[in-house]
Nucleic acid binder design. Sequence first.
DNA 1: CACGACCCCGGGAGCGCTCTCATCCGACTG
DNA 2: CAGTCGGATGAGAGCGCTCCCGGGGTCGTG
Lengths: 335, 335
Amino acid sequence: MAVTLADVARLAGVSPATVSRVINDSAKKVAPELRERVLAAVAQLHYVPNAHAQNVARPRKSAVGVIVHDVSDPYFAEITRGLQRQAGAQDRLLVICNSYREPERELAYVALLRAQQVHALILAGSGYHDDAFTARLNAELGAYQQAGGRVAVIGRHELVGSAVLPANEQGAYDLGCRVFHQGHRRVGVIAGPRLLTTTTDRLTGIRRAATELGVRLDHVVHADFTRDGGALATAELLDTVPDLTAIMALNDSMAVGALATLRDRGIPAPDQISVTGFDDMPIARDVTPALTTVRLPLVDMGDRAMALALDDDPGPLSERAPATVVWRSSCTPPS
Amino acid sequence: MAVTLADVARLAGVSPATVSRVINDSAKKVAPELRERVLAAVAQLHYVPNAHAQNVARPRKSAVGVIVHDVSDPYFAEITRGLQRQAGAQDRLLVICNSYREPERELAYVALLRAQQVHALILAGSGYHDDAFTARLNAELGAYQQAGGRVAVIGRHELVGSAVLPANEQGAYDLGCRVFHQGHRRVGVIAGPRLLTTTTDRLTGIRRAATELGVRLDHVVHADFTRDGGALATAELLDTVPDLTAIMALNDSMAVGALATLRDRGIPAPDQISVTGFDDMPIARDVTPALTTVRLPLVDMGDRAMALALDDDPGPLSERAPATVVWRSSCTPPS
DNA sequence: CACGACCCCGGGAGCGCTCTCATCCGACTG
DNA sequence: CAGTCGGATGAGAGCGCTCCCGGGGTCGTG
């Protein structure tokens, strides 16, 4: 069915070895005339070498795999863009897999990418508070490293390999300080799933700020890390604590959902209730009011993680990504 | 370096053939005791079969490749979500490649995915007005199909293979009618790159509506199909034609950029200038004013394209995806 | 008790490619 | 003119795996 190297060799009237030489190291000496004949045959047959066979014969692992929660989530879309940029710069194919925050699927994809002989493996997104799972995942990744694979993670501190770690706790702390300093005392927090380390890291930062400034943080609602999760959590919060002056969402998607719920209920933001997000996704500046949030250099984080993974020299090392508060109009002092 | 099937066989004290049997068709008869020994060895060594070797020995093509312009663009993120959903449902790995609207890169990725022996190949996103390029791409795709590969495209009518075609022209026409009926006469259009068929399709729809309703459409500006492109184009439009009553963007990203520019200049939308988009991306309802746009069932389109590609029974067929106007607050009659 | 049927297991060829190594041709030198 | 050297080409093994096929063991039956 498919055209093989042997077909090309036959058509060109040369040996398979010669075709192989022409195909990959055009540097090697092949008589110009033969080379021409081979190239003509390749063009005529639309021949593309079988990458699997090539890989078996000469294991040179060119692809890189990344496992994210969901590329269609802007947070991961941005990170992926950075990964792509760096991977492209080093002429590598990026294979993207969505785990949809499903630990078992994550494990399955690690096996799958390992089977594909990827040169490096990148895990992006929050880790899970689940020691048994973490141990299994680390065993898999360890075996992969043992066999020469490279591992890098983004925003997960519990795993082997190099890491790019956003300053979730610090960023949340900084934002919390700013918000509480403004005078907000009845503050609701809409948080992501309890199981995610990102949720707890950010929550810890806010709690630390609250403690330092003597603010009680009684209203924390957990929901999905999505727009709709944020909308739901906000509704719940408003029903139980109508006199809130601020809502802090642990990511921008949730904050957008919060704004939507406030809009639906006719509650003016930030005049009656201020809202903050986290991540500084592209849409943060385009919603109204523009979102006060914490900026994470997402594209850059992806880029650096890929660089770490592909840099074959050093052992595992970890880099921090700074989190900086971005002050926009969605947060004002309480009236 | 890496663990091979032979290693497992040695450790388990059985033949490679037996290990192979245990690995893939656990249905086949293998004595329970041997099976246990093999599984134990697999677990102990963290063995993962080499997918490339498997593929060479038994070419069963499980992966599917998709080439999009940019997954981090919400338009493609949504489509990709649909593709993933269907691919996942059929237990297939999705390989995602970004062409960044670069024809040569698109061609390179087709070759690369062909080399990877993908079972099906999906191209999503606008085509190019470039006959030479189209011919080359079609030759590549044709050869791929000849060799048993499946091809599906989304929103490209110029290529071989099955297709899911959004009603770009019709949707733009419907939207144009609504806008012009409202009384808008001085309307600016901010369009994507001239080279893209999506641009011309949508533009054609609007022009048809304009012609029918006797509206002159003199102000069409081309820019990137992005937020920043839209912002720039809007600035240009405002500088040359300050008394516009409406701006029609050919996609939502551009419309968001248009809103941003209007906001920067202190021009109230829709009170002074109405704005419309196209695609109904998730953010369309979260910007202020909420965007009047044309809804395309993006996730569903991805899903259906993947289904077409994986359905090995029929020849190429093409499905239409409906475009429906979604009326939100960003468009009101001119004052 | 002997013969055949059946079933597991292992041997080994072969998938498409790469790469080492031997061969062969031409050219250059003494 | 003969001998040698260099460089291009082809033959063939081997990468990790699958799967066909044959050998031997077990069980049942006449």
